[in-house]
Design a protein around this nucleic acid. Sequence first.
DNA 1: GTTGACTTGACGTACGTATGTCAATTAGCG
DNA 2: CGCTAATTGACATACGTACGTCAAGTCAAC
Lengths: 342, 342
Amino acid sequence: MEKPTVRDIAREAGVSLSTVDRVLNERTGVRPRNAERVKAAVQKLGYVRDTHAANLARRRVYNFVFVLPEGSNQFVDTLRGALKEASASQLTDRVSMTIKSVDAEDPHAVVSSLQVLNRHHVDGVGLMVPETPQVRDAIARLKENGVAVVALVSDLPHSECDHFVGVDNLAAGRTAGVLLGRFVKASYGSILVVTNSLGSRDSLERRLGLDEVIASDFPSLRTLPTVEFHGDVERLSEVILSALRAHPDLVGVYSMGPGNGRLLDALRTCGKLRDLVVVAHELTPTTKQALRHNEIDAVIAQNVGHLARSALRVLRAKCDDVQIFMAQEQIRIDIIMRENLR
Amino acid sequence: MEKPTVRDIAREAGVSLSTVDRVLNERTGVRPRNAERVKAAVQKLGYVRDTHAANLARRRVYNFVFVLPEGSNQFVDTLRGALKEASASQLTDRVSMTIKSVDAEDPHAVVSSLQVLNRHHVDGVGLMVPETPQVRDAIARLKENGVAVVALVSDLPHSECDHFVGVDNLAAGRTAGVLLGRFVKASYGSILVVTNSLGSRDSLERRLGLDEVIASDFPSLRTLPTVEFHGDVERLSEVILSALRAHPDLVGVYSMGPGNGRLLDALRTCGKLRDLVVVAHELTPTTKQALRHNEIDAVIAQNVGHLARSALRVLRAKCDDVQIFMAQEQIRIDIIMRENLR
DNA sequence: GTTGACTTGACGTACGTATGTCAATTAGCG
DNA sequence: CGCTAATTGACATACGTACGTCAAGTCAAC
């Protein structure tokens, strides 16, 4: 049972190679009757186009653009590195990748960066930006132009994306909650929750997941209102310190986003770090080091290498109009502790 | 900066295409001087062979064989399924895969299954069997015949394998130890350790990791001698029950291998399941269900889909004599709880 | 029956590589 | 210097697909 080729299709359908080609590549000038025959033959023989040979023949180069938030953020930095590494690897041959950094908080900046793409020849876009009506429209326009679009890390549920590459943040928050609840030895206490901004849907979902689990499974614990520092690290230190003073029963800290370095600094200065159960998000140099030093008890992470490769694979698949292999594209919620960090 | 092709190499080296081809494919009849020139040109231009085009031209089919332990074992079953799924997926084109099941405890059976491979045309082998001197020799013979060999799940450190696809079991045991230690609320108690056989190096390493971590980080806990049931599930139930009677201070159970279903049955019948912290290995229908019912607190797992795809990718890479992308082939120690199970 | 539009098939070239054949060149040796 | 053997290059064919060109075919409307 060799794999069928276009020749087999032509023979089976009783037409010429040219006609098969016209049907497969959706060119005009084929009578419906013959088109049907070809499609039937494809079905019957289970033909799948050899994309490698096809790409070879058409000298295809996949032109992908990734739009990531600018500014200092270790997670975004590692993601950027992973994207570059993945596109350099042999796996992702024939891919030419551009990474753009934009002020993700400024919808106008995001949109204008996407509008540019419509003019150039771009096959696929990966987006890590918050969803706004403007962004939604810009994505719709990209889709009109036949560009494949995937949401990266942050879902864009109301936009016409082809796929979301990232984790279920509600489940991530729940996971963090269980870890905090089970790691805390005290019979009661409160938990500090920190993030950059609850405006980002990731943080919001994580917070919801946390509260769900604490409320149902750990009623003796209490989650404090979310501390948001909105990029202002000075404020972060201050608020942490005052929270520590205000809540002497503090037993845990949940950091839902960036700013782990500053957060740890603040906790360190008041000497309570060792007594607190700390759960943070994302594996970065800071969190890795903190794990090794037992300053962070667990990290909830998504494998950036997997994110990057998955995004590239999905974009290719969408360009080629090929099924994706869901099992491989499922991004897991990783729990990293000192012992399984490597 | 287009990718260089063989033509570019020929021009750069000042020789003909034929000569370049002779060098690249290690054919005879090239003067050392010219061979050097070609190699230098390859270096200088950063040429990498387009394996897809090459495979197209030589009509290559990768012939891989996997040898897995026979007998009822949910983990092996899921692995088998993952292998089939992976080879069916588009990623692994041009791969023809055979899965053999052998009595892994019988070195003779394993070896004879490997000897057969030398006669047929096989490009690569994935092995999940215990290491014995006979197996070691059989692998050496495979390597002599130019067959790529990877160890799957269980490392074969003293054999000439090209690669090990699996996790660091010492670290896995340590991870289990930390989870047990931190999840147990009681101030002291003992931990039951169960496996099929400590003869398997995986179990042994996990046990060592567990003991390391319990001894150093949780001195108030005590790990009991390993219960081995050697495939005898009746014995498993019995021993569990008598252990429960003998150790009323039991606070945790660590199941290092197969047999989770029977173990849980035994724990269930004596009604102590809810009070115990249970950590088991591998995501299977049994452990998934037990996680959902809060009967198991955490599962230490390796993603079988990842194992399968990694094994196939590595075998291909070894056949093509191409570098592997280590970041992608690193199998992580997954910690699965109810909240991040999906 | 003629015209024109649409449809079809035959064929050539290309992508980057592999592999074979054969003649031409070169090196090594006496 | 001449001979033989080793080395080299030119060329052809192929893999599975894409795509362009052109002549021949079909069909309906006039």
